[in-house]
Simulated assay, not measured.
Amino acid sequence: MKSRTLGIVAVAVLLVVATIGGGLWAFGRLSFLNSYGSEYSYEVRVSANEPISNVTILAPLPVVDGDSPVADVIETREYLLPETWSYDVVETEYGPMLRLQADELPADPTYHRPVIENDRLVRWERVSADEYDQNDTDVVRVDHDAIELTADRTVNRSVETRAPEGTEPLFEPRSNVTAVPCAWPYEDDDVQCYSYDTQIFVSYDGPETTELSVTVELRGTNSWWVGGWNYNEYTDRVYVYDLPADQRGWVIVEGAAETGVGNYPRNLPQ
């Protein structure tokens, strides 16, 4: 009897475990499908170590099949953007690029007071520096020491993050593409890393001691929630730090790409 009873109990336990396991699997699968999303994120930052004027920068856009998926959703992070700054997309001999223009960079700080009507903010009113007091929260100081732009575009399919070449947007032009060792924290993972050469256009008036920095970054990401946020992505970066003033016009700069970052579950949504 005891053996039979133990057998029945064992079977019952296995059935309970199987039921719980199946429920957890189903819940996890549902959570995965409901939370799964894919997007491209694009960021540009331009700064200088001292004031410059008449600034024009042409920065690469991520392109696939001649088009950029983020070109029409670029926006500024600049709080209360100066009227003398502008940006647009232009065609160049190297394909579409983002053109940033500014009368001055860095510019002097500007000061603004909110205009409230019917308990709602309707606009910001610019005031003089004499009206600013750092202890007075009614007037805001804005430092314009860099141009920053960003763009985010969601897509209704999975992004190919392991092998984006040819199917996903990347920066152009790119030449001398070379596989390189991955730096921490990816040196022991299945991440693939590459370096390449590309070009940006730089024009400005300023001292010969000026050093300009331009960074451009693209991320193609898939993310989902199962017991916490998970993701995989590829990144493409173009960067030049402290570019000396004698390098203007079309300038060759470095690019770097990383593919296969993150984790890869089975049965990805299509």
Rank of each mutant, 00 (worst) to 15 (best):
R99G: 06
S86E: 10
L121S: 01
L81K: 14
L121H: 06
D88F: 08
H112R: 11
Y87R: 03
R120M: 09
H112Q: 06
L98Y: 08
E117S: 13
L81F: 09
W85Y: 15
P106D: 07
R126T: 14
R126L: 04
R126S: 07
A102D: 02
P96R: 05
E93K: 15
V90N: 06
T92D: 14
P96M: 09
A129T: 05
P109C: 06
P96I: 05
E104I: 05
W85G: 05
E78Q: 11
A129R: 10
A129C: 00
E125M: 10
V127R: 13
V127S: 14
Y94M: 02
L80P: 05
L81G: 00
D108T: 09
E78D: 13
P109Y: 06
A107R: 13
V122W: 00
L100A: 04
Y94N: 02
P106V: 01
P109V: 00
L105P: 00
A107P: 00
V115W: 09
L98F: 07
P96A: 13
D88Y: 09
Y111F: 15
L98W: 05
S86W: 07
A107F: 08
P82R: 09
Y111G: 08
D108G: 08
M97E: 13
R120K: 09
T110F: 03
L105G: 01
I116L: 06
W124Y: 15
H112A: 10
E117D: 09
G95M: 02
Y111T: 03
D119W: 00
V122G: 02
H112K: 03
R123H: 11
W85S: 12
W124N: 08
P106L: 03
V122H: 06
Y94Q: 02
Y79T: 08
T110A: 14
L100P: 01
V122S: 03
L105C: 01
I116S: 00
V89H: 11
E93H: 05
E91D: 15
Y79G: 00
M97F: 15
